[in-house]
Design a protein around this nucleic acid. Structure first.
Length: 270
DNA sequence: CGCGACTCCTGCCGGC
DNA sequence: TGCCGGCAGGAGTCGC
């Protein structure tokens, strides 16, 4: 998946095409996603006007005057704006057609994504208990440090926990910890407030920089305009095991933590 | 409650 | 060239 910057880039790409547009038709070719698309989804959305396209964590929210569609891209999902006469390819599960003649097409080969309906999306069980947005008020080093009291889990898993803070995926978790000089395996509760302030800063910086760069990290990501992502390798450690550390020249190490690949510099990170 | 393991699914890549 | 195993950006759920 798209990590948070990819989702935000997708949101910015598609929002101008959708806002104030009336949904004229919803075409669902495959309902079996992470959860089945609800049977009444088409009926709920058809005929309504999109008021805004918002994002909460990695969920895209298509708000109408009466309820909202909630879309999660999972690991392999993408959205783009198309001419609805364009034939659907394999894994193109949903088209939402609008009054302006365009359509939003959702593709998701692995089907880990989801498409749901909620009268009040922020109160939906999947969104209700989420932690703060990393780029908004309410997230800083003090907050991280307070939440880490008594927690023995590895800091990498801690910052990837959406109940603590949303939007830090596997790639950026490694990157942020490298920049903060913290070993991925260090217990969350054993990190000083000073270092947590540094970590919160790197999380904000990395996510903001990645959004500014158009969000793209890996090659199968498509922005809302359908153009391939930039695939810029601005990454310092992710996927670079064996390469020399940018700072100290030590080879970057890799190991598995909580079933996720993890990259770090054993000299720079303690 | 906190934590670790497991799970869903397809595509792709490297090794033989 | 083909087959097979392993791995991939997420995150909910279960069992201890």
């Amino acid at each position: 998946m798209p990590e948070l910057p990819e989702v935000e880039t997708s949101r910015r790409g598609i929002a101008p095409w959708l806002e104030k547009q009336r949904v004229v038709e919803v075409i669902i070719r495959e309902r079996r996603l992470r959860w089945p698309i609800p049977d009444d989804f088409e009926a709920k959305l058809t005929g309504k006007t999109i008021r805004s396209v918002d994002r909460r964590a990695k969920y895209l929210l298509f708000n109408t005057d009466d309820g909202a569609a909630i879309l999660h891209l999972g690991m392999s999902g993408s959205v783009r704006i198309i001419d609805p006469t364009e034939p659907a390819a394999k894994h193109d599960h949903v088209d939402i057609r609008f009054g302006n003649g365009k359509a939003l097409r959702f593709r998701d080969p692995r089907r880990f994504g989801s498409l749901l309906w909620a009268d009040d999306p922020l109160q939906h069980p999947l969104l209700r208990d989420l932690g703060p947005e990393p780029l908004e008020e309410g997230f800083d080093g003090d907050y991280l440090w307070r939440r880490a009291r008594g927690r023995r889990v590895a800091i990498k898993q801690f910052i990837m926990n959406a109940k603590i803070v949303v939007g830090v995926g596997n790639i950026y978790a490694s990157e942020c910890l490298f920049l903060a000089g913290i070993h991925p395996k260090r217990s969350a509760g054993r990190i000083s407030k000073k270092r947590m302030i540094s970590l919160a800063g790197t999380i904000k910086d990395v996510l903001q920089r990645s959004i500014d760069a158009g969000g793209t990290t890996l090659r199968d990501f498509y922005g809302g305009d359908g153009e391939p992502g930039y695939f810029q390798q601005q990454l310092d450690v992710y996927g670079r095991d064996g390469d020399p550390c940018r700072v100290c020249n030590q080879n970057i190490s890799a190991f598995v933590l909580g079933q996720r690949s993890t990259f770090y510099c054993r000299r720079c990170q303690r």
